[in-house]
């Protein structure tokens, strides 16, 4: 290989990675090359390590496609951001990962969507187990009109846990992981609706963590929050990624740049570009992506 400057090297590595996504070859990524690319300072995991994999996945509401022909892989213990203009299907895609979209009548899917190498749209899928292991946080904080304790204990109780001490411990751990424990530990019996918006959202995160999921889906978790609450949630995402795989949909490009390692740009239901976040924001290979991240469109 002829000697190149660092910048060329980076581009060639990213291109080779991208080719691999596109052709879905099961070839190993040359890790040495990646380690040389200091600006990205990140090691892409091997292909086989992906936890979620979409294979030509399309989702239809009636006859209208919500997303079409998505092929991408999401890697464990990373934050993957999905960005794109309104109505581009990013939420649809996120909500298909735990099949919460099933609640909408007249939907159907084409292609395959794998979670942990299991096609989750096959008929034998145990939805209860899927949703307990692929947790979700919604756009609007949606605590149940119950006490804080009962909110977090809801998931474990559904699993059949009745012992007070076990529930107590799960609730405490979940609230601690969601950085809410110190604020509410003295009034767990208080109604969850009495909390502030940011606290409610962290409560919803704690509630999602209470079933010990492997993947956490976040559907614009900060869009209803003020900047201070938002920064708290972002800090939380930063710590949570050590234990969980996070997929976050966001409108806010700065947020995607701040919290994520990988970013996927969706437009009109299609996946336009999927790459390292740094690459997406500094040197996107697609013109549309560039226009979007630089604010010329969307």
């Amino acid at each position: 290989m002829p000697k190149r400057n660092n910048n060329d090297m980076v581009i060639s590595v990213v291109k080779s990675i991208k080719d691999k996504y596109d052709t879905s070859e099961l070839e190993m990524i040359d890790m040495e090359k990646i380690e040389q690319t200091e600006p990205y300072n990140s090691t892409l995991p091997e292909k086989s390590l992906s936890i979620i994999k979409a294979d030509d996945f399309s989702f239809y509401y009636g006859s209208k496609a919500g997303v079409k022909n998505i092929s991408m892989e999401i890697y464990p213990f990373m934050v993957t951001a999905i960005i794109g203009p309104s109505g581009c299907g990013k939420s649809t895609f996120l909500r298909s990962i735990n099949r919460i979209n099933d609640l909408i009548p007249n939907i159907h899917v084409e292609g395959k969507l794998f979670v942990n190498n299991q096609d989750i749209y096959s008929r034998q899928i145990n939805l209860v187990n899927l949703r307990q292991q692929v947790g979700m946080v919604f756009q609007k904080p949606n605590p149940f009109p119950k006490s804080i304790f009962d909110n977090v204990a809801y998931g474990p109780r559904l699993q059949g846990i009745k012992k007070r001490s076990v529930l107590q411990q799960t609730v405490e751990e979940s609230l601690q992981s969601a950085a809410l424990w110190d604020e509410v530990k003295d009034d767990l019996k208080k109604s969850a609706l009495a909390l502030s918006g940011g606290q409610q959202q962290r409560l919803c995160i704690a509630r999602a963590l209470s079933t010990r999921p492997k993947v956490l889906l976040m559907d614009e978790p900060c869009s209803a929050l003020d900047p201070i609450a938002t920064s708290k949630i972002e800090d939380l995402i930063e710590t949570l990624k050590n234990d969980y795989t996070i997929v976050i949909v966001t409108h806010n490009m700065q947020q995607a740049a701040r919290v994520s390692e990988m970013a996927a740009f969706f437009c009109l239901g299609e996946l336009i570009e999927y790459d390292l976040t740094t690459k997406i924001f500094s040197n996107p290979s697609n013109k549309q992506t560039e226009d979007y991240v630089t604010g010329r469109f969307g």
């Binding site: 735990n98 919460i100 609640l103 939805l127 209860v128 187990n129 899927l130 949703r131 307990q132 947790g135 979700m136 919604f138 949606n142 605590p143 149940f144 809801y154 998931g155 559904l158 699993q159 919803c204 509630r207 999602a208 209470s210 079933t211």
Partner: peptide, 8 residues
Amino acid sequence: EASYALGA
């Protein structure tokens, strides 16, 4: 949705 998402 919150309830279904917790596996209810």
